[in-house]
Nucleic acid binder design. Structure first.
Ligand SMILES: [Zn+2]
Ligand SMILES: [Zn+2]
Ligand SMILES: [Zn+2]
Ligand SMILES: [Zn+2]
Lengths: 160, 160
DNA sequence: CAGCGAACTGTTATGTTATTACACCGGAGC
DNA sequence: GCTCCGGTGTAATAACATAACAGTTCGCTG
């Protein structure tokens, strides 16, 4: 599994790639990446962290793209439904997807100190819970996997 | 892993055992299992499902045990902190623990149809995410694992 | 081209979940 | 008796989320 989120990276291309992947996916699927939806995705990619719906709404409002909660929630619903973003239940917040386009079950590492989030993969069928579920006949459709702890950088700072 | 929650069981003893385990744990640890706290735990055990804080508060209010949100939230905080109950992030709700006293990392199977919840174990260090986290130096302290799907009974009903 | 429906947006209002802040109470220890 | 501390009672508010409905655009079809 490839983990992303805590290491340094070329952020400009990270934003560009995210938007491009979404645009391409929408083109193929006949979905509309409208200005609001595109901008919300950009905001998530730019900030590169988990953002609450109202944080995003503040930015939209500043830019004249919408001022009421449904505007933000509708765009986020679209992004989540189509796999361009994920909801972090633990934080009531949203992050841009690191593997857009790919069909995947995300798992997250959330730093409780700096609030940054790394996204990885967790195959729900292969782990202990998945096997036990299969054993009792429970059919898993979706799994929320969110680990909380300290990222490498914050462990460093703790020691200082 | 032992999964509990969907099968039939002796519910009276299930309630009694849960309260007894908590009472015993509190006695040993010098914690106060006050009337409100005990009653909230009983409510969770009686209903044997995930309950919102306000659902619980409604019951407390009917019984004259408190009418304002902090009463319910404080009791729930106590129960969660001491391992007698768990919060289900996906549902903004709470369930009584099935393994009180034992030190464990719970994982849940949530039926999207009947809303019942089964609790199992998920060792965060042993799965794919845990190994990847260790590889990049992320220290996992706690993990939310919540699988959503259809329980055996609801799959049956679907077929009818 | 008129009429229509689907998808999206704008806005108001409201519902749901959770916390802050402060007054009060009662027992333990001195 | 006094003080500290953990717990409770309550009001007010914050934070998160949705319902409902009017208005727009645009492509389709008669
Ligand atoms: Zn993803
Ligand atoms: Zn960190
Ligand atoms: Zn448990
Ligand atoms: Zn079910």
């Amino acid at each position: 599994m490839e983990l992303q989120g805590f290491e340094r990276h070329d952020h400009a291309s990270c934003i560009r790639d995210g938007v491009d992947a979404a645009a391409e996916h929408c083109r193929r699927e006949g979905l509309q990446l409208t200005p609001v939806r595109r901008r919300v995705l950009e905001i998530l990619l730019e900030r590169h962290r988990a953002l609450g719906a109202y944080d995003i709404l503040d930015t939209l409002r500043d830019e004249g793209l919408g001022s009421q909660p449904p505007v933000a929630y509708r765009a986020l619903d679209f992004l989540v439904k189509n796999g361009f973003a994920h909801r972090i239940e633990r934080l009531n917040a949203f992050v841009a997807c690191n593997h857009p386009g790919e069909n995947h079950s995300p798992a997250f590492l959330i730093c409780r100190k700096c609030d940054r989030v790394a996204e990885g993969q967790a195959d729900p069928a292969s782990d202990m819970l998945g096997r036990s579920a299969a054993a009792i006949g429970f059919r898993i459709e979706r799994a929320v996997v969110e680990a909380e702890g300290l990222c490498p950088a914050c462990q460093e700072n703790d020691r200082k």
